[in-house]
Design a protein around this nucleic acid. Structure first.
Length: 681
DNA sequence: CTGGGCATCT
DNA sequence: AGATGCC
């Protein structure tokens, strides 16, 4: 077949005869996600436009009109299009950027919380249309929509004059008819609907690529840049591959492989295509060689693997220099505090802890990170989830320092430029703690959760289809007492309720079979049913209104962060949703936001200024010797301990800060543990 | 060769 | 535990 040659300019167009695909993959793994006899996969790549910048512009719409850059340390990691017009580019240093564009407005982007949340909302929204969604970073998603396409094919067979939605990658300006590629055409309409949904429901724009595999979908999605979509037809695979600048442009070919290839005289994609396979095998071994060769030809049989909830959670910070152990302890403690809080919201129990460092290397010897990991004692793992943050953090700091000393000889000088803490081996069991209410319950799991309990069900769905959320169905009914633990769950449910209403037109909701007609397919009815009735009603009612008012993700993103003063920080939440300020367009969606907004407002409002004294059994002197950062963190934690946010329901009291205040005693002793790190030895 | 994540393979 | 790759 050799689709490579023959530019077939203009004419001769009617020769799409004999391909079932541009290739005949050597491997049998072909219709990996498709039904056995299926013709062709239809793969979609979805890519948000300058994602971080978009989130910030939603938070503060006034940023839309100015050149905006998102800064991490000394780098502009992304920027809006106003800034791009003035020459700012993606990985530019702040100084260069300011030089190009003095008016550039900078927003700090080191804290990824908002971006991560918005990112998961996008993935979740997409997942509600079709379960096969794979994340790539925070701003890209792959989808295998083959089944959706096939269903539409059968429901409404393609009429003549079938059309594509959006652009078609068409270098030869050929006559294009959708009926020649009905599946891709349908895919393009699905892509348009999905982009529409993401825009109307979350307020985010992005590009989409439609093709027959992941590689091609990703490559083609960027051909028309902001907020557009493009289909790649099989006859143009050769063209798009060879139009890539060099091998480095092929996703999957990183720096190292590109270097090796360069040594072999391979620069262009065409070079790679033509390089004898044995030569490749010598350098890379059989598997990688084949993969590279295939990629160069536009062949990619890798499946769209549903990402589900992350397999690890980590937090890190980089810096110019860190050389004292006191600094290290403080930094680790600060990182761990945030990480533990994220872990709590996640609800799964980590079994492994890892500490990673990067040392300063004068002769820039690239990135070398070193890490040490260890199991987390299950008692400690439970503490992490139990909500007593500091009770878990302090022992973890201690654990981290042990790992640290496996890498850094205490007593000799060191110079670190990065510290990372990571929880992995996440177990969604959380015995009595209600592992079911967590956000992960709403994120279809890919991992057969290696339940420690003998699993009674041999359930193992065909492909990536989510098994029901974990947890034995009963036994956790009262678990929603503490709403603060489930607020993300709450928002999530809100955001994904009643999905494809806005995208009517083409036999809209396939993948979402709604049993109750209102509950999205992947919302566990049991979980939903466990909510207090009033909440259920509010959710359903508000969701309906919401879908018709096209809200953006703005509210969800703004409120929890309580960004500087941006208009509404007034702790008087009532004012806010009863009477949306016209000065704040993003919030002017009307009272139907009420249900979803309330918990957020409460959360944002509640821990304002109450500066308490230290808990009685904490020695002030000991406390005062702690690093200031730790003092601050501890105070903050103690402050947060006080108010117990409860949902107005009699059902099950929050098992949050159970009992008195056991942590004071333990905390104090932990401090002593902590202090030992300041004694040199 | 910058940033704060994530994943996979060895 | 590191290397590599992706954003």
């Amino acid at each position: 077949m050799d689709s490579s040659d023959e530019e077939m300019d203009g004419d001769d167009g009617q020769w799409r005869s004999q391909f079932t695909g541009p290739e005949e993959p050597a491997t049998s793994g072909w219709s990996v996600n498709s039904p056995p006899g299926a013709p062709h996969r239809v793969i979609l790549h979805f890519d948000l436009d300058c994602f971080y910048a978009q989130v910030e512009m939603i938070r503060d719409p006034s940023l839309r009109e100015v050149p905006l850059g998102i800064q991490q340390k000394y780098i502009i990691v992304t920027c809006n299009y106003v800034a791009r017009e003035r020459g700012v580019t993606k990985l530019m240093s702040v100084t260069d950027a300011k030089e190009k564009c003095p008016e550039l407005v900078l927003v700090r982007g080191e804290d990824l919380t908002l971006y991560r949340e918005a990112s998961h909302q996008v993935t979740e929204l997409l997942s509600s249309f079709c379960p096969l969604v794979e994340r790539l970073g925070f701003d890209e998603n792959f989808m295998d929509v083959t089944e959706m396409v096939e269903r539409r094919m059968q429901e409404t067979p393609p009429p003549e004059g079938y059309s594509f939605s959006g652009h078609v990658y068409n270098p030869s300006n050929a006559e294009i008819s959708g009926s020649d590629h009905p599946r891709l055409a349908l895919g393009s309409h699905i892509a348009a609907e999905l982009r529409g949904a993401v825009h109307s429901r979350l307020g985010l724009t992005g590009c989409a690529g439609v093709a027959t595999n992941k590689l091609l979908a990703k490559l083609v999605s960027g051909t028309f840049k902001p907020n557009q979509q493009t289909v790649l037809l099989p006859e143009d695979v050769g063209h798009i591959m060879e139009s890539l600048g060099g091998v480095r442009k092929v996703p999957g070919v990183g720096h190292q492989t590109a270097k090796k290839l360069h040594q072999l005289g391979v620069v262009s994609v065409k070079d790679l295509q033509l390089l004898p396979l044995p030569d490749l095998v010598k350098e890379f071994g059989g598997a990688v060689a084949r993969r590279l060769r295939n990629l160069s030809l536009g062949v990619d049989d890798s499946p769209v693997t549903p990402s589900g909830a992350p397999q690890s959670l980590s937090d890190e910070d980089s810096f110019k220099k860190m050389s004292s152990e006191a600094e290290v302890v403080e930094k680790i403690q600060q990182l761990l505090s945030r990480l533990v809080e994220r872990m709590q919201k996640d609800g799964r129990q980590p079994q492994t802890f890892r500490l990673t460092i990067r040392r300063y290397t004068p002769t820039n010897k690239w990135f070398s990170r070193e890490s040490r990991q260890c199991p987390i004692p299950s008692r400690l793992g439970q503490k992490i989830l139990s909500g007593a943050t500091e009770d878990a953090v302090l022992p973890l700091v201690s654990l981290a320092m042990k790992l640290f000393h496996k890498m850094v000889d205490g007593g000799s000088a060191f110079h670190l430029t990065l510290i990372n803490v990571c929880f992995s081996n996440l177990q969604s069991r959380a015995a009595g703690a209600g592992g079911k209410g967590a956000i992960t319950a709403f994120f279809p799991r890919r991992s057969q959760n290696q339940d420690s309990s003998p699993s009674v069900d041999g359930r193992r769905s065909g492909h990536g289809v989510p098994p029901a959320p974990t947890g034995s169905s009963e036994g956790s009914e009262g678990e929603f007492g503490g709403l603060e633990r489930n607020q993300s769950f709450f928002e999530t449910l809100l955001e994904r309720t009643d999905i494809p209403r806005s995208t009517q037109g083409c036999g809209s909701n396939e993948a979402t079979r709604t049993p109750s007609q209102r509950l999205p397919a992947d919302v566990d009815p049991e979980v939903f049913g466990a909510l207090p009735e009033e909440i259920q009603k509010e959710l359903l009612g508000s969701a309906h209104l919401i879908s018709s008012t096209c809200p953006s993700v703005a509210d969800a993103l703004r409120l929890p962060t309580n960004k500087p003063p941006k208009t509404f920080t007034d702790s008087e939440g009532h004012k806010f949703w009863k009477d949306p300020s016209p000065a704040n367009p993003a919030t002017a969606v009307g009272p139907e936001r009420l249900a979803g907004t309330r918990t957020l407002t409460e959360r944002a409002a509640f821990p304002p200024s109450s500066d308490r004294e230290l808990p009685g059994n904490v020695d002030p002197l000991v406390f005062s010797q702690l690093p200031l950062g730790i003092q601050r963190e501890l105070r903050s934690e103690w402050r947060q301990q006080k108010p117990v946010l409860k949902v107005p329901s009699s059902k099950g009291s929050g098992r949050r800060s159970q009992g008195k205040d056991p942590k004071a005693v333990g905390g104090s002793s932990q401090h002593n543990n902590l202090l030992k790190y300041f004694k040199r030895s």
